[in-house]
Nucleic acid binder design. Structure first.
Lengths: 153, 153
DNA sequence: CTAGGTGCAAAAGCTTTGCATCTAC
DNA sequence: GTAGATGCAAAGCTTTTGCACCTAG
């Protein structure tokens, strides 16, 4: 599990007068025991491997807590369900490239784009705080070989 | 209605051996009679003003056709429903800035970001074709005045 | 002891689909 | 005439919620 996350969540929970439970611990452990993106349903499955008593409702009730705490990022890639990204702790400024052909998601960082985002945001009257950026593109692999090796979702 | 769109859609339809109907015409007219973004439900309402016989099912069946034809862009801004953008014909390279506070969506174009997208896409092994970019940011208005004038959705 | 948490199953909300009827070509 | 389109209502899917029971502090 990613270091520090559990502590950050506990502090957040405590500050709000909420409680620490076995189920929440299991969900946190599952959520940050991987660097892959996942859906709510997938998180439920992972959490249940750790603590079988975890229910779907509790997962759905805990997800907003983790997002609100700032440890987990909720994303929407145009699929029918939301996707969660546990990598914002390790790489707070990473961006996403999503392949429109095969749905592959590549995370990347780039200094120039950071700067550009700041400029554009300010120009339009927005504060560059808490921004994120995503590029949709076509997969070279698909065009060349008719299929994409890392087809996902 | 945006010029050329109807023709483009008709050609697309014809090529696929599909048919032109009163309902589809009304949906196209509604979809491109505005420059605002809209949901499927909103499009249904607009189309019914033109042709009352349009049903929800036909709207949902026609949306993928317009998207597949390339005249309409489907977007997902993390809300519970999809949003459609009819402005890609007039401005094929525009990007979106979405305010995380008030959901305001600002469209903008930027030469530098175009270049940067190309570089990054290629670097990661993707073709820059059909890319789009969105920035999420915080609204200055909200921070200053506690509320945002153009609160939407 | 009690405010907060949990599981279950039902409900909600958007989107899709089966089916009988209709219509563009 | 026939493949394709439509409307209606039912079904699907993810996510939310009401409720009775449980538990951390």
């Amino acid at each position: 599990m990613q270091p520090g996350v559990q502590d950050r969540f506990n502090a957040f929970i405590a500050e709000k007068g909420l409680r620490r439970t076995v189920q929440r611990d299991a969900i946190i452990a599952a959520a940050f025991g991987t660097t892959e993106h996942y859906t709510a349903e997938e998180l439920l499955a992972m959490a249940r491997k750790i603590e079988p008593s975890v229910s779907r409702a509790t997962v759905y009730r805990t997800l907003p807590l983790m997002v609100g705490c700032g440890v987990l990022k909720e994303m929407d890639f145009g699929k029918d369900h939301k996707i969660y990204d546990p990598n914002y702790n390790a790489h707070p400024h990473h961006n996403h490239l999503i392949c429109v052909d095969c749905n592959k998601i590549v995370e990347f960082e780039d200094q120039h784009i950071e700067l550009l985002e700041d400029c554009i945001s300010k120009r339009l009257g927005f504060s560059p705080a808490s921004k994120s950026l995503r590029i949709e593109a076509s997969c070279d692999e698909l065009r060349k070989h008719g299929a994409c090796a890392s087809r996902k979702l």
